[in-house]
């Protein structure tokens, strides 16, 4: 065997070069990134979206299973009294995996971690019992810091209590919706990253370094064939517009090249009637060819349909 005998120096330099390159491009940046504390955006995002929205063993087919539910709470779930102010809580039903920040509080960053553990008691949250979280503010080292509060421990609110008093219009399935966003490949055309150098006027402020702690996948996107969506919920908050746009984008924007996502409506509409897609498409073709004055009516989506989650996620992007 000839081996590498003539290449002793070469193979050592190769190891050194590759090791050096990995130290600079992996180890050094990881120190920087790990020292960044979560912003409010990061806390809200990871609590709303949950553990993982790409492939994972809790939702292997990316159907939006085992995801948290965001509730705009108006009444105290224990006493039934009206709350002084509406409160956003993040409900993790039994079995829904917690986001990375709850499992490893260290990634929340200095201050947020300490408050979340000591005042928020997030380490007492248990997946097999479910939990309800909220974002609160407290003072840490003389500064106002947001932290995660485990309301199941601190107030005794269980997921069942909260869901009992929550009405459907107060509920957002943004976590399941982000799964749809990833599965349907929305991010192949719509970025989630307004650029630092421009975009301020049209697509809103670019994100901060601490806006992503605990999020996976971040799905920035690289190929912007369509508008950036990081702040789409601030630009357009109309569910009706979203509904028509997803069913057939050409209904609201004749020049759009977006695919139709009518299949996310599923079998049945909001009233439980079977959706006749063939009929709808035939009528739409008539409309396009001028044989009809108005396009056919877009069916209302069922409250447990995939499109509902996706629209919830869109509207959560403020």
């Amino acid at each position: 065997m000839a081996g590498f005998r003539e290449y002793k120096i070469g193979s050592r330099i190769f190891g050194l070069a590759l090791g050096g390159s990995m130290t600079i491009t992996l180890f050094f940046p990881s120190i920087n990134i790990a020292s960044t504390a979560s912003t409010d955006v990061a806390l809200a995002k990871q609590l709303a979206v949950g553990h993982e929205t790409g492939f994972n063993l809790d939702d292997p087919l990316l159907l939006g299973k085992n995801k948290p539910i965001v509730v705009n709470l108006k009444t105290d779930p224990k006493s039934g009294q009206a709350l002084p102010a509406e409160q956003t809580v993040f409900v993790y039903p039994v079995g829904a995996p917690f986001p990375a920040g709850i499992i490893h509080p260290r990634i929340l960053g200095t201050g947020v971690e300490e408050l979340s553990v000591q005042q928020g008691h997030i380490e007492d949250a248990r997946k097999d019992a479910g939990a309800v979280f909220a974002i609160n503010k407290a003072v840490y080292n003389g500064k106002q810091v947001s932290y995660i509060d485990d309301l199941t421990t601190t107030k005794g609110w269980t997921p069942e209590d909260v869901m009992r008093v929550a009405k459907d219009e107060d509920v957002s399935h943004a976590g399941a919706g982000k799964t749809m966003f990833v599965r349907e490949g929305c991010w192949w055309c719509h970025t989630l990253l307004p650029e630092e150098t421009q975009d301020w006027q049209v697509f809103g402020a670019p994100p901060m370094q601490g806006d992503f702690n605990g999020e996976s996948p971040t799905a920035f996107g690289s190929d912007r064939k369509a508008p950036d969506l990081l702040h789409v919920g601030s630009r357009n908050s109309s569910r009706e517009w979203m509904m028509m746009h997803f069913f057939n984008p050409r209904l609201v924007q004749p020049h759009s090249i977006m695919p139709r996502f009518d299949y996310l409506w599923g079998e049945k509409d909001a009233s439980g009637n079977k959706i006749d897609y063939a009929k709808w498409r035939a009528e739409y073709t008539d409309y396009r060819e001028g044989k009809r004055v108005t396009p056919p009516e877009v069916p209302s989506y069922a409250s447990n349909s995939e499109i509902r989650s996706l629209i919830d996620f869109m509207l959560s992007l403020k």
Binding site: T36, H51, A100, I107, F212, N213, E215, S216, T218
Partner: peptide, 12 residues
């Protein structure tokens, strides 16, 4: 990031 569930900017 997938094997160890790394998140955030590290993942990106």
């Amino acid at each position: 990031p997938e094997f160890f569930h790394l998140t955030g900017l590290t993942e990106a």
